[in-house]
Design a protein around this nucleic acid. Structure first.
Lengths: 131, 131
DNA sequence: TATGGGGCTTCCCGTGACTGGAAGGTCAAG
DNA sequence: CTTGACCTTCCAGTCACGGGAAGCCCCATA
């Protein structure tokens, strides 16, 4: 399988797959002509990485997850800890964004949005919030 | 006011303030010795930027917001449009993170988290989800 | 056999918004 | 005079790629 086909099957851009090889996430074989030659195992790994990335895991998380995946003597506790930490990060990020959303939505709602210059959004950004 | 003081008052790292000057967000005066010399207006601008950044606006958004802030003939509709677009982006990001959270929480909940290798998290990442 | 058009390769630069660190000038206190 | 805190500039790195150039390789068609 050449890169374009494995890219289509894994749902990843070819560029991304070359990048994953560069950083050592995958090690596809090479044909005589120098082309990368992907087998079923490579495809499987790439799909795995793609799904992990889709859940927001970092590349280093993916590396660790792959290592655990390939370690038949792993403890599921290790996987759970990794995923749990990531879940916590996601929840923190959601909370942060929701706080932004609340503030911003309040400002936007207060703004007339007409052709006059008075604007509670700019006032809100301008004021120190201590008064 | 030297950079350290304005940094403390604006609640931004000095490095960040130098960066903001480099990209043209602010133009502090210079003392004879070459040190940046910040006035009240600079501090006010930096605090404005800091708050906008805190609400998740990009630097380019901040540039536009500052321009609107300093334009006495602005239309509040322009500000509202900018903020509204940002609000939409935030909401989309929250939805994306919540989808991740749901999937991930399901996997984590299904994982025993003991010393055995069986792990629904790894299985979930490994499977194509079509079955 | 020429040629055209994909596909493949490597390499380098750019992204956003900083952050860290090195090398060196300046200033006030002891 | 020295020490140490502060300031300056410049360069490199972050994260996870994406764009694009320059140059092979391969196959089909005329």
């Amino acid at each position: 399988m050449n890169i374009k086909e494995v890219a289509a099957r894994a749902g990843l851009p070819a560029k991304t797959i070359r990048y994953y090889e560069e950083i050592g996430l995958i090690r596809p074989a090479r044909s005589e002509n120098g082309y990368r030659s992907f087998g079923a195992a490579d495809l499987h790994k790439l799909a795995f990485i793609g799904r992990a990335r889709g859940l927001g895991f970092t590349i280093e998380d993916c590396r660790a997850l792959l290592a655990l995946y390939e370690d038949r003597e792993r403890a599921s506790a290790d996987v759970k800890a990794l995923a749990g930490a990531h879940l916590t990060r996601i929840e923190a990020k959601i909370a942060e964004l929701q706080a932004m959303k609340r503030t911003l939505a309040g400002l936007v709602a207060a703004c007339a949005g007409d052709d006059r210059p008075d604007c509670p959004i700019l006032s809100g950004l301008s004021e120190s919030g201590c008064d």
